[in-house]
Amino acid sequence: MLKIINLDIHNEKALKEVNEIFQRTWNDSIEESLKKHTGYEGFQCILLQIEEKTIGFAYGYSSVPGQYYHDLLHRHLSPQDYESYLTDCFEFVELAVLPEYRKKGFGARLTNCLLNQTPHKNAVLTTQYENHRAKHLYHTLAWVTLDDAFIPRDERYVIMAKKLNK
């Protein structure tokens, strides 16, 4: 049975499952970032489970002035794009699905479910320029590319945004 549930941030087992999925996806840990982000305004994280096994997750939070990434995007975007997309905005931070469950629509399902839960009018995300699968997924879900030459660290990223019709 397939179900989507909200993450209980006090459930250490669920937090460990999220970290394991992230490690299998990106060969890195998300534990420290996730714990920090749970304290952000508007934090939401959903888990996709099949028969009690967590196979994917998505999370984000309200994007507000004073946050590192919000301010970084603000400096990079045009005043028009900032006003259009980064006000009343949900920052879509992470999406990960275990490799054996990809290409089955689970990423789209997690994305849509998470965005449907947010009260915000806009959403923004960044993904690696070379991550063609992610960019394709987001484009099919009506995200638009605002900039494809964003370099916040040592790698090129794409800034994408979406109007949420709220």
Rank of each mutant, 00 (worst) to 15 (best):
M1V: 09
I4D: 06
I5M: 11
N11W: 04
N11P: 10
E12D: 13
K13D: 15
L15Q: 05
E17R: 01
V18R: 03
V18K: 04
I21L: 08
I21E: 04
R24H: 12
T25A: 15
N27I: 02
D28N: 14
D28Q: 14
I30P: 02
L34Q: 09
K35T: 10
K36P: 00
H37F: 11
Y40G: 03
E41V: 06
I46M: 09
L47F: 09
L48H: 06
L48G: 08
I50F: 08
E51A: 11
E52L: 08
A58Y: 05
G60I: 02
S62V: 02
S62Q: 15
S62F: 07
S62D: 14
P65W: 05
G66R: 13
Q67T: 09
Q67L: 13
Q67F: 04
Y68F: 14
Y69G: 00
Y69E: 11
H74R: 11
R75E: 15
S78G: 08
P79H: 06
Q80F: 10
D81E: 13
Y82C: 03
S84M: 08
S84Y: 05
S84D: 15
L86E: 09
L86K: 00
T87R: 14
T87D: 07
V93P: 01
A96M: 02
V97N: 01
P99A: 12
P99V: 09
E100S: 09
K103S: 08
K104M: 13
K104G: 01
K104E: 13
G105D: 04
G105H: 04
G107H: 02
A108W: 01
L110C: 06
T111G: 03
T111W: 01
T111N: 11
C113A: 14
L115Q: 12
L115S: 09
N116E: 14
P119K: 12
K121T: 00
V124S: 12
T126W: 07
Q128L: 14
Q128Y: 10
Q128K: 11
Y129E: 11
E130W: 05
E130S: 12
R133K: 09
R133M: 04
A134H: 02
A134I: 00
Y138E: 06
Y138R: 03
H139I: 01
T140Y: 03
T140A: 04
A142G: 06
D147V: 00
P152T: 07
R153S: 11
D154Y: 08
D154W: 04
E155F: 05
I159W: 03
K162V: 01
K163R: 13
K163N: 12
K163H: 15
N165D: 14
N165T: 07
K166N: 14
